[in-house]
């Protein structure tokens, strides 16, 4: 589409050939469009919707504790048993220099309260400064309310 046909007489390069640029940019665009919905910290769960959630840019600054619908527990993307949860959190936070990453609990909407609460309690009892637990939620579905 962008191949030049007539070169203006005399000019060394009358027009830049933009075809490769367009190709590259389009490919990058498609890559980003595909990747965007996939990128999220932690394990993949069906988050419960909430209207009043506080929105924050996810720059990888949170350490996400996932609880799946079957009750399995994950630190970031690594499966753990609940007895090892605290060790794993400590291990993951080891690299954080100075300020430890805030913990966010990402529970599946189909999990039972007991499963999520067990994780919350375990963290609350063993990790300092967790009086306020952050629960990850989803945006509410469109057209509700």
């Amino acid at each position: 589409m962008g191949a030049k046909v007539g070169a203006k007489k005399g000019g060394a390069m009358a027009d830049i050939n933009v075809t490769p640029l367009v190709d590259v940019v389009l490919v990058l665009l498609i890559i980003f469009m595909v990747i965007t919905p996939m990128l999220s910290s932690g394990v993949d769960v069906a988050l419960p919707p909430a209207q009043t959630a506080e929105s924050e840019k996810d720059m990888g600054t949170n350490l996400v504790i996932g609880v799946k619908g079957d009750g399995s527990v994950f630190v970031d993307k690594k499966a753990v048993v609940i007895d090892n949860l605290i060790e794993e959190i400590a291990a993951q936070r080891e690299g954080d220099d100075g300020r430890a990453r805030p913990l966010v609990v990402k529970g599946d909407r189909n999990a039972s309260y007991r499963q999520v609460r067990a994780v919350i309690d375990e963290i609350h009892e063993n990790v300092p400064f967790t009086d306020t637990m952050l629960l990850a939620t989803d945006k509410p579905p469109e057209g509700v309310n």
Binding site: L134, L135, T137
Partner: peptide, 8 residues
């Protein structure tokens, strides 16, 4: 770098 929705 997507947004996270959080409920305290």
């Amino acid at each position: 770098p997507m947004t996270v929705q959080k409920l305290p």
